[in-house]
Design a binder for these strands. Structure first.
Length: 576
DNA sequence: GCCGTTTTCGGCCCGACTGTTTTCAGTCG
């Protein structure tokens, strides 16, 4: 209800675009765009902060923008934005998304040819009126014509889930690695930062100056088009539509290039500014004092020469990591080897593919000390869900298997549906006999935020709840997160207590990074889970760990990084 | 519009590539 951070972020982004089209001060424009990004990635809803002075404490938000946030929260709109919209016709802004179209050319179109929409532009191109305009040559015009015909009107740039991008990135990496003379290949960008989605592939090649790998790149079977290729930089599009940008750098620059192309953009900008403050210059070729390169071969050197500890790529989002690196307070991030168990695992008793025995064997191969079998509980809509009697039989089978196993303990659990009204799909008397009760939403994703939040909070009041699984219900590229006030859910989880899952299924990665950090900051422990439905899917734990790392999680923040004895204590604390 | 180890004005990251230029502006990442 009310205004969300995403609305505020969009308002600032729109102001930035409209100011750019008007030819306003570029630094003012940047301030709005930066504020938009900052607001978008905040875990707390600005509308719920009671003291508006808190706005000004945010980096990049000064007195003016704080007042604008307050105005948006109070009134739902913004005078500045309304005024700009009156000056710049709607439809002009979306011209910015066309290739080769920046603020200068968009302004020329609007002012000189009265183009105020994509349709106007199409007509202007067709009638040849663009030719009179300075800066609109034949190449640009034909590019526009293609884009207008092909590109869908809105929301064109589609990001791929990380695991889908990996299916294209890894073969490309192997191909490039095989080119003679290429010493090293790294996929940088958001792929290296392990963001949950990837917009393009930033590929870095290490090769001496006499090697030109772009001929070979042009012959890559999955390549669609190679749109630009200079001596050190090429870009193109794979057949599946994924944009790739390839850069070639010499070994002495590899670290600085890797740093720059790993990003994020904001992190890299902060680093360059930091260099500048010290009388140095940082670019993709190295860190320079005058013309002398003082670092560049490795990232570690670069950070050290700027007075910082090396920062893991997962943290490079300009969310406080540079300050932490300066103070020496970067968190020692959780690693896969820290996980002692997995508390969300299915078998063929419900919708999994493999038997209890096979899942246990796979868990031992993954070097886990314990797993919880959490098959779906029976209720309408869940196929093969377990009722009380079948849970009883599974418990007996687990007891028997535990007798035989020496290095793995199997805990008894269930994944229980949260019904539409917040009740659970199994009675408390049945849940009381389990070691681990995982609860989750599996339907009615489209309730209002008020109803969805009340539903989950009510479920958390039940006496035998250990873990809230995949809290947002999102499926990357398929289903948006449901409207849920995660702030209130986190507070309820902290006070209760119970734990929140970081689901490692590649299409879920739920909680997201921002809410992992919010949970961590509140002291709510995380359960990094595979949600495996087959033996090989226990490997999902790796993806969960990556996601947790992006949210600054240490092993102390993770429930299943505890040894079994400690885990049992923590699980008992959830019994009300 | 933000911000301060160049502190309340005067800066603000940096380079590659393209197209349209006759020396560089604009876009992009």
């Amino acid at each position: 209800m009310g205004i969300h951070n995403a609305d505020i972020a969009e308002a600032f982004a729109e102001i930035g675009d409209l100011l750019a089209i008007q030819g306003d001060n570029p630094f003012r424009i940047r301030a709005y765009r930066r504020a938009s990004q900052i607001v978008r990635s905040l875990p707390r809803e600005l509308a719920e902060m009671h003291d508006a002075s808190e706005y000004e404490a945010l980096p990049g938000i000064g007195a003016d923008l704080a007042a604008k946030i307050a105005e948006l929260v109070r009134t739902g709109h913004l005078d500045t934005l309304d005024a700009l919209r009156r000056k710049v016709p709607s439809g002009v802004r979306e011209l910015l998304s066309l290739p080769g179209m920046g603020p200068v050319r968009v302004r020329a179109l609007a002012n000189k040819l009265h183009v105020r929409s994509r349709a106007d532009l199409e007509r202007a191109v067709a009638s040849g009126r663009l030719e009179k305009l300075r800066g609109f040559g034949p190449a640009l015009q034909s590019g526009l014509q293609t884009a207008l015909a092909v590109q869908p009107a809105a929301g064109s740039a589609k990001r791929l889930p990380l695991f889908v991008a990996a299916q294209y990135a890894e073969p490309l990496r192997r191909y490039l690695q095989s080119i003679p003379g290429v010493a090293r290949v790294e996929i940088a960008g958001s792929y290296r930062r392990r963001r949950d989605t990837v917009g393009d592939l930033d590929v870095l090649l290490c090769a001496p100056p006499d090697v030109n790998p772009f001929d070979a790149l042009g012959r890559y079977p999955d390549l669609g088009t190679l749109s630009a290729a200079g001596t050190t930089k090429a870009s193109g599009v794979l057949r599946n539509g994924l944009q790739i940008d390839v850069r070639v750098v010499p070994p002495e620059s590899f670290g600085s290039a890797l740093h720059y192309f790993t990003g994020s953009r904001d992190h890299a900008i902060r680093m360059r500014r930091r260099a500048q403050e010290r009388g140095l210059k940082l670019n993709e070729y190295g860190l320079f004092r005058g013309t002398a390169r003082i670092a560049g071969e490795t990232e570690e050197d670069l950070y050290r020469r700027l007075g910082l500890a090396w920062i893991a790529p997962e943290l490079r989002e300009d969310r406080g990591e540079i300050e932490a690196a300066e103070k020496g307070t970067l968190p020692p991030l959780i690693e896969r080897a820290d996980l002692k168990g997995d508390l969300h695992v299915h078998t063929d008793a419900s919708d999994g593919h493999d038997s209890l025995e096979k899942m246990a064997a796979a868990a031992r191969e993954q070097k886990l000390a314990y797993i919880a079998i959490t098959d779906h509980a029976k209720h309408l809509g869940i196929v093969h869900g377990l009722d009380a009697a079948r849970l009883e039989r599974q418990a007996a089978a687990i007891d028997a298997l535990n007798e035989k196993l020496r290095d793995l303990v199997i805990l008894k659990g269930a994944e229980v549906d949260i019904l539409e009204d917040g009740r659970l799909a199994l009675p408390d008397s049945v849940l009381a006999r389990l070691d681990v009760v995982v609860i989750a939403i599996h339907g009615h994703f489209d309730l209002s935020e008020a109803k969805q939040t009340a539903r989950v909070l009510r479920a958390l009041e039940r006496p035998h709840v250990s873990i809230l699984a995949h809290p947002s219900g999102r499926l990357l590229g398929e289903r948006e997160p449901c409207a849920l006030d995660l702030e209130r859910v986190l507070e309820a989880a902290r006070d209760r207590p119970c734990y929140l899952e970081v689901n490692g299924q590649p299409a879920r990665l739920d909680l997201d990074d921002v809410h992992v950090k919010a949970a961590r900051d509140r002291g709510v422990l995380l359960s990094i889970a595979s949600d495996a439905h087959s033996a090989d899917q226990l490997a999902n734990l790796e993806g969960g760990v990556r996601q947790a790392r992006r949210g600054w999680a240490r092993k102390e923040d993770v429930l299943n990084a505890c040894p079994l004895g400690e885990l049992r204590k923590l699980l008992r604390r959830t019994r009300l």
